[in-house]
């Protein structure tokens, strides 16, 4: 029993920490620019495969750390290009933005799928910073995951600091509150949005770098699952609310791990949990548990 509880608590925290990173950026992009970026899950997935491909290249043997730097730079650039090439020209139409980013996510998935590594399950365990595990109440606590949880908390705090204190962070907040007023204050809203999308891609990439080495690359379609779960998180927390995203991430995390451990056939139902959360929250409280914004 105590093992089950440990299992639930630890995995819930882990899942929450991963989704806090992924969902924070996703939510920020929507809050600042009203952009629903359906490629967000694909960024996470693609970072994993970028790392894998580079690790498979002889050049990087002994330079594993460089792969992380490159992968994060590439995914940030892809985020920026998504905005500049696809989202910005279509910003006036919600339908177009949603369809075009849906198409991009689909494309990234297919590109990975037709690559030689597309159809198998891979490990990028070389990038684990910490090996091994410690038994606590009979449950193995994986060190890499502890590292992840700590890093996630650090990144969330740094990010909050960045948004509230830095000049760029303040501009981002200004644009999200009132775009026109921000424009009058001499802030280039378009550039701010570009940075926001890039930051969100970077955060998704960081999450992938921290989480995937301890887990596995389950195939290119995994991006959709992360997208949908992030959506559940921000729906729960309220679109555009950072605190909401973090809280939502942990609620979703614990709900999933609870289902996994304590519900009969849990693992297969756990897949459904976030989707059910989405539907229920959308129906009873569309602005999210912590959000104030109207859905328009």
């Amino acid at each position: 029993m105590i093992v089950d509880i440990m299992n639930m608590l630890f995995n819930g925290t882990l899942t929450g920490a991963v989704y806090a990173l992924i969902a924070m950026g996703y939510s920020l992009v929507y809050g600042v620019g009203g952009i629903m970026n359906l490629s967000h899950g694909a960024y996470f997935m693609l970072t994993g495969y970028l790392l894998l491909w580079m690790l498979q290249t002889p050049f990087f043997i002994g330079l594993e750390w460089l792969t992380v730097v490159f992968a994060l730079i590439i995914i940030t650039v892809i985020g920026g290009l998504t905005f500049l090439l696809l989202v910005k020209p279509l910003q006036d139409s919600h339908v177009a933005v949603v369809i075009v980013t849906f198409g991009l996510a689909f494309l990234l998935e297919q590109v990975v799928l037709i690559s030689p590594s597309g159809t198998e399950v891979w490990s990028i365990g070389q990038l684990r910073l910490f090996q091994g595990y410690t038994m606590v109440f009979g449950y193995p606590i994986v060190h890499q995951y502890v590292f992840l949880i700590v890093m996630s908390i650090v990144i969330v705090l740094l990010f909050a600091l960045f948004i509230n204190k830095s000049k760029l962070g303040k501009s981002i907040r200004a644009v999200s509150q009132d775009r026109e007023a921000a424009g009058l204050m001499g802030i280039n809203a378009s550039r701010i949005l570009l940075y926001t999308v890039m930051i969100s891609a970077l955060l998704a990439g960081l999450a992938a770098f921290l989480y995937l080495p301890g887990a596995s690359l389950d195939g290119p379609s995994m991006g959709w699952g992360y997208l949908l779960n992030s959506f559940a998180v921000v729906i729960l927390g309220g679109m555009g609310s950072l605190i909401g995203s973090v809280a939502g991430a942990f609620i979703v995390g614990y709900t999933i791990s609870f289902t996994n451990v304590f519900v009969p056939y849990g693992p297969s139902w756990a897949h459904l949990v976030p989707i059910i959360i989405i539907i229920v929250i959308l129906l009873i409280r569309p602005q999210g548990l912590f959000g104030k914004k109207e859905l328009r």
């Binding site: 949603v98 539907i279 129906l283």
Partner: peptide, 30 residues
């Protein structure tokens, strides 16, 4: 009926979520 309270991109994701629920239910071994 329930999803129509959602607008634009929310409806898009709401319908996507619904279809994934059905897909996963139908795939479920149990």
């Amino acid at each position: 009926f329930p999803l129509l309270r959602l607008k634009g991109p929310y409806l898009a994701l709401g319908t996507l979520a619904m279809s994934l629920i059905l897909l996963k239910l139908f795939l479920m071994g149990s």
